[in-house]
Simulated assay, not measured.
Amino acid sequence: MTIDERRSPLRRFIQRLTASEAELHAEELQRESAECGAIPVGTCSRGQRVSVSGRLRTVVYTPRTNLPTLEADLYDGSDVITLVWLGRRHIAGIEPGRQLTARGRVAVRDDRKVIYNPHYELEAPR
Rank of each mutant, 00 (worst) to 15 (best):
V80R: 15
P63H: 09
Y75M: 09
V114K: 07
V59M: 12
P40F: 09
Y120S: 07
F13K: 07
T58A: 08
C44K: 10
P96K: 06
Y61G: 06
S53T: 03
V108R: 12
V59H: 15
W85K: 01
R105D: 09
L24I: 08
H119K: 14
I81L: 13
R112L: 10
Q99K: 14
D110I: 04
L74R: 04
G54Y: 12
P125E: 13
D110T: 08
L67H: 11
R12C: 05
H25P: 07
G97A: 02
P68T: 10
L74Y: 06
V106G: 01
R6D: 02
S33L: 11
G97W: 05
M1W: 02
V52L: 03
E95K: 14
E21R: 12
S51N: 10
H90E: 01
R109L: 14
S8R: 10
T82V: 04
R31P: 01
R126G: 05
G93I: 08
S20F: 07
G77H: 04
E28Y: 08
V108Y: 07
P68N: 15
R103M: 03
P118T: 03
E35C: 02
V41A: 05
P63Y: 07
V50H: 08
I94Y: 13
I115G: 12
A38Q: 12
N117V: 10
L29C: 06
H25Q: 15
R55N: 00
I81W: 03
L86A: 13
T65Q: 14
R88F: 13
P118D: 02
R7Y: 04
G97V: 02
L70A: 00
A22C: 07
I115V: 15
L122S: 10
C44R: 09
R12W: 04
R49I: 02
L122H: 10
R103W: 10
I14N: 04
E27I: 01
N117I: 09
R12F: 05
Y75N: 15
T43A: 00
T2S: 10
Y120I: 03
P9G: 00
I14V: 15
T82D: 01
L24D: 02
H90G: 00
R88D: 04
G104T: 12
K113D: 07
Q15I: 07
H119Q: 15
D4G: 01
R49D: 06
D111E: 11
G47C: 07
L74D: 04
T65H: 11
E23M: 10
D73I: 05
G97C: 02
V60G: 05
P68H: 13
E95I: 08
P68Q: 10
R11V: 01
G104S: 12
L17S: 00
H119C: 11
W85L: 00
S53G: 04
E32V: 04
R31S: 06
L17C: 03
L56Y: 13
S45V: 14
C36G: 00
A38Y: 13
G37Y: 13
H90V: 00
G104V: 08
I14H: 04
V108K: 11
S33V: 03
V52F: 05
G42N: 08
S8W: 06
L70T: 02
I115Y: 13
H25Y: 14
G37H: 14
D73F: 03
E27G: 06
R12Q: 09
G93S: 08
I39E: 14
G47R: 11
